[in-house]
Design a protein around this nucleic acid. Sequence first.
DNA 1: GTTGAGCGTT
Length: 267
Amino acid sequence: MRGRSYTPSPPRGYGRRGRSPSPRGRYGGHGRGDGPTSLLVRNLRHDCRPEDLRRPFGQFGPLKDIYLPRDYYTGQPRGFGFVQYMDPADAAEAKYQMDGQILHGRELTVVFAEENRKKPTEMRDRERGGRGRVYDRRRSPPRYSRSPVPSYGRSTSRSRDYYSPPPRRRYSRSVSPRERRYSRERSFSHSPARGRSPPYNGSRSRSRSPVRGLSPYGPRSHNQSAGRAHSPVRTRSRNRSPSRSRSRSPYPGDYSRDPRNDRSPSQ
DNA sequence: GTTGAGCGTT
């Protein structure tokens, strides 16, 4: 076993086209052994949007997804992105063709993406201290929490943006319950992110315009509008019958035998 | 029940 060093950017002139030099299995996040379908595109301009990638990358075949990760708190683009194809062959071709291409004056680096997608929780951890920079948003909010936020006008049609803020702590004591309603409506007109909520409230980089073959709702979202057609009135929340919850006891017949109910007298 | 806070960002 010898440590195989992963070459971040293979020489552009390598004459072999088609097959990726990468061993299969490594990028096996997609489950198939056919080959990777996700490309990692580096050296993107920070104002680059998914749409900008779609055109050049879409030439090689139908795209499944384009995603440009951003910093959670600042909303700043991180300078790289993912382009996923339906067909691994297209991905390979695109990688070969696009690697080294100039987009917006920048030379792109295109490689196959690992599928090391992190979970949101892990991401938070990493933002907290893993990256070396400690965003202690509870105390010292990042300075840039004020402006670099693009003027996304809160979500419009989508009842809820993809962006879901971390669970808020309680409201400020000075805010009466009545006011809460207002503040909800007012959105962020006041000091947005008082050092707590991420200033970035924009909808994700995902563009509204569907790509050829891409669902307007996004590949991972189901079209839920069908099920809710016209039924604005929802049945009242289920009646939580007390007897029902009691019957959950492992000893439905003999309540006193329920261990949960049987607490030690000494405590 | 699968991620929209995605790995290789300055």
